[in-house]
């Protein structure tokens, strides 16, 4: 047992004696979290508005990454590629909505989960057939920032990713709050029947929501290809992560989704640093369970108080 504890304690000591590494961990954690926030944000939107749980979320991400890769082969700068990829994925989302999602939207939880599971495995293999199974990356052409006398490094692309995530989130909040369509979306999320009675075209709202999600995922995919790697079968990790974040944050709470993503990103870095990489994911899901439990106790106390 001591063989396990001692290195952990040593790792912890590093953070105390050289606090500069905390900065590195937090910066990395925030940028990791920002990328996950994009996928989670889209999921929360779709889940909140249409109650569809999109298990193919990660595969939309991978598809966006591959579209970006394809464009870069034709000489498009990956950062620029974000725009056409977003548009293409928006269109793709619309098609998928019309073909599949539309028909399962009113059904129970597991029907949509199953339909999107079918979609996920289909997309994986189509990507595999079209682009081959190779692990791909995109070159952003950006350098890195050195902070605090070179003790802390952060790549510019991560900063860009973080910025993009914030911009997208703010844009979405403004769109939902101020635009006519945004109001329709929010109304539909609260009560689809009432919205329909009041003249909202809920079908259009659903389609739009799903397509926006698809576009966001596509953008996330291009960023992921620039920061990490893409492969047709790696999408599932992003789906799981998005579900974890949305569940932990609570449905319908968009700012919380962003904050939870960022928080989880940082916590994951710390657990990887102190406990070791093998405990990174276990920490995240363990934390999810704790949050769920904690919420449940709150809920029970609330119920008791009501009685």
């Amino acid at each position: 047992m001591a063989g396990v504890i001692v290195p952990m304690w040593d790792n912890f000591q590093i953070l105390v004696t050289a606090p500069v590494f905390n900065v590195q961990l937090i910066l990395n954690g925030l940028s990791v979290g920002a990328v996950f926030a994009l996928a989670a944000y889209g999921l929360a939107l779709v889940w909140g508005v249409t109650s569809v749980k999109n298990l193919a979320q990660g595969d939309f991400v991978m598809m966006g990454g591959y579209l970006g890769y394809e464009l870069s082969l034709h000489g498009v700068n990956p950062i620029v590629a974000i725009v056409p990829v977003g548009v293409l994925m928006f269109a793709y989302g619309w098609v998928i909505y019309a073909l599949i999602i539309r028909r399962v939207i009113e059904l129970d939880l597991f029907t949509s989960l199953l339909a999107t599971f079918g979609l996920a495995i289909t997309m994986q293999q189509v990507l595999n057939l079209v682009f081959g199974p190779d692990v791909r990356t995109l070159k952003s052409g950006f350098g890195r920032f050195e902070l605090l006398d070179g003790m802390v490094d952060i790549t510019q692309i991560r900063v860009v990713a973080f910025g993009l995530c914030i911009v997208l989130a703010v844009a979405m909040v403004l769109f939902l709050r101020n635009s006519r369509m945004g109001q329709a979306i929010r109304a539909t999320a609260q009560d689809p029947r009432a919205a329909r009675v009041l003249g909202v075209n809920t079908d259009l709202v659903y389609a739009l929501t799903f397509s926006i999600n698809s576009a966001i995922c596509g953008v996330a995919g291009v960023i992921i290809a620039m920061i990490w790697v893409i492969q047709p079968f790696y999408g599932i990790a992003y789906s799981v992560r998005a579900f974890v974040v949305v569940t932990a944050a609570g449905l319908g709470n968009f700012p919380a989704v962003i904050l939870t993503s960022l928080g989880l990103g940082v916590i994951e870095q710390y657990s990887g640093f102190i406990l070791g990489a093998q405990f990174q994911q276990a920490t995240v899901v363990g934390l999810l369970l704790v949050i769920l439990m904690w919420r449940q106790t709150l809920l029970r106390r609330h119920r008791l108080a009501l009685q």
């Binding site: 590494f21 590195q24 961990l25 990395n28 990791v32 992921i224 920061i227 990490w228 790697v229 790696y234 599932i236 990790a237 994951e268 870095q269 710390y270 657990s271 990887g272 640093f273 070791g276 990489a277 990174q280 994911q281």
Partner: peptide
């Protein structure tokens, strides 16, 4: 299925 090893690298 870990895609980020920056914690280990730190």
């Amino acid at each position: 299925d870990l895609s980020d090893i920056s914690a280990t690298l730190t």
